[in-house]
Design a protein around this nucleic acid. Structure first.
Ligand SMILES: [Mg+2]
Ligand SMILES: [Mg+2]
Lengths: 250, 250
DNA sequence: TAATTTATGTCGTAG
DNA sequence: CTACGACGTAAATTA
């Protein structure tokens, strides 16, 4: 139990020092901005980080119920509440946390943030695949031109043994409608730019049934694959072309 | 500073009691599952909630660097580290947090989670719009509104004054490619089911330039609108039809 | 700065 | 349990 005066001093100190700040207590939360919300009174945890990212957490779920980043934080004592406000412009937004009881305040001087080393990202899979496109199809070669650019419009652009341009989209998880429409969009765009018929290949571990139907309607191709995440190398295995499932004639 | 023995006891108690648990200390984090990652040693905050949702936070950004939900949490003392593990099946995943120094442990009995009352969601805007479709266009009437409502394939399905079926997709923010392709997919599907030409209308506060070009290529229509978030009613205002931007002749 | 895309997306919901 | 779409998506990347 903290008096609002004590609490305010402690909070302002921590914020000034860019410390990780945690406030636990009975509060009511209002948000107004891109949307609006009200969180009924209850015991919650407020986390404010050194970069001013703020979040109100309940005791369930990963994501906070309210949050804001790049905000200006302020703290004021009202009649019956300690009010913590986070405000930002662009978009104009505001959160107000009304603490009616402050149970605990903790703050920690933290180490400067380190980069997470992540393996198995789509980018990594895509790079691995590019090293040997014959995994996909005999005679498939990356187009040097596109390779030069960090990222063009599609994940990969290649040329098949007959000289057709092939647009390749890689997904690290089960492909859905959006993966298919994305590939279709890229394929059409490349087709328009180069003025030649272009193949589109979706490479993903799995694909939703309905998404696959759409893909086949668009005349695109699907290859399944597996990958094994390793350090430092992620390995691609078991690439195989899936034949169209001819379910109906038009 | 906690001894590993003390720390372990405190942690296990908090987890058993489904309390909100916070552990601060110098640690190294390994994740393996859908992807894999390593977070270099440093002072971090581990948050474990009553539903076993766990997150490793650094002192910046809203999102945690590592996280897991619906996991089985365990804690064991090793030679030079206190190891907190979170494991789950489906997908099979694991996080290990190696604490080399435990600076602080806090746990809190929390109130049961309350529902956030959110205003200005897409669903709310859609409902509001349906009440008076003449906002969009004279003579537009909701069609099979219960089915449109329940089925949810499209946000709204209506009939215009000439008897055409109109599929309407509402977006609460600036519409992009995916909004356009989504609407296109719905419109085509309704067209196929009913066997008649179908209009597709995208209603959004704004639309990306490129997305708009795509929309016009598809023969779909765009209406802009504004909304004012209120409690309990969100008001829709300033709906206006945007004429196709004829940029090029085919 | 705006546009675009990824994400270990998370989360809710309907079937 | 899966499919599917919203999310105040956040965050990284690129033009
Ligand atoms: Mg991709
Ligand atoms: Mg919608």
């Amino acid at each position: 139990m903290f008096s609002f005066g004590q609490a305010r001093q402690r909070i302002e100190e921590a914020i000034k020092g860019k410390q990780m700040l945690l406030v636990v207590g009975n509060c009511y939360v209002e948000y107004w901005g891109r949307a609006a919300s009200k969180l009924p009174k209850g015991k919650r945890l407020l986390m404010i980080k050194g970069d001013s990212s703020s979040a109100i957490h309940q005791n369930r779920l990963l994501r906070p119920t309210n949050y804001m980043m790049n905000a200006r934080i302020s703290c004021e004592e009202q009649d019956n509440a300690l009010v913590l406000s986070a405000k930002k412009l662009k978009p104009k937004e505001s959160i107000k946390v009304f603490f009616y009881r402050v149970d605990d305040i903790q703050s920690y001087e933290m180490d400067s943030a380190a980069d997470l080393r992540l393996f198995g990202s789509e980018r990594e899979l895509s790079n691995e695949l590019m090293k040997d496109l014959s995994f996909l199809e005999e005679g498939l070669k990356p187009l040097k031109q596109e390779q030069a650019f960090r990222k063009g419009i599609a994940d990969l652009i290649a040329e098949d043994k007959d000289g057709n341009i092939v647009v390749i989209e890689v997904k690290r998880r089960k492909a859905d409608f959006s993966a298919v429409t994305q590939l279709q969009r890229y394929a059409k765009q490349v087709e328009k730019i180069n003025g030649v018929k272009t193949r589109g290949i979706l490479v993903a571990p799995e694909i939703m049934k309905n998404a696959r139907d759409l893909l086949e309607n668009y005349g695109l191709e699907y290859y399944s694959f597996d990958f094994e995440i390793g350090n430092p190398k992620t390995k691609i295995k078991g690439v195989q072309k899936k034949q169209p499932t001819i379910t109906e004639f038009m």
